[in-house]
């Protein structure tokens, strides 16, 4: 989780990622932020994120991102 929070803060450090639950739905993270995040997650966790994963539900909070990362690591 700490690594995910570190990556997120590297993209935009003005957001309280530990509490925020609507990063995408609330428009806090734009599409450029999302593709930067995906590239960083792939490198940090050695996973491949496919276009099918690009749903707001997977990126709306740090917790949702962690769940997606863990699921992809298991696969």
């Amino acid at each position: 989780m700490d690594r995910i929070l570190e990556i997120l803060r590297g993209i935009d450090d003005s957001i309280d990622y530990e509490r925020e639950e609507a990063l995408i739905d609330g428009g806090l993270l734009d599409s450029f932020g999302v593709i930067t995040l995906v590239a960083e997650l792939e490198e940090a966790f050695d996973i491949t994120i496919e276009a099918a994963e690009m749903t707001p539900a997977n990126f709306n909070s740090a917790g949702a991102i962690r769940e997606m990362v863990e699921r992809l690591q298991e696969n």
Binding site: S31, I35, V38, M54
Partner: peptide, 15 residues
């Protein structure tokens, strides 16, 4: 965004 931007940004060549 959903059907062009993300799929292109996650395509093999862009990766």
């Amino acid at each position: 965004k959903t059907y062009i931007f993300y799929p292109v940004s996650m395509s093999g060549i862009v990766k």
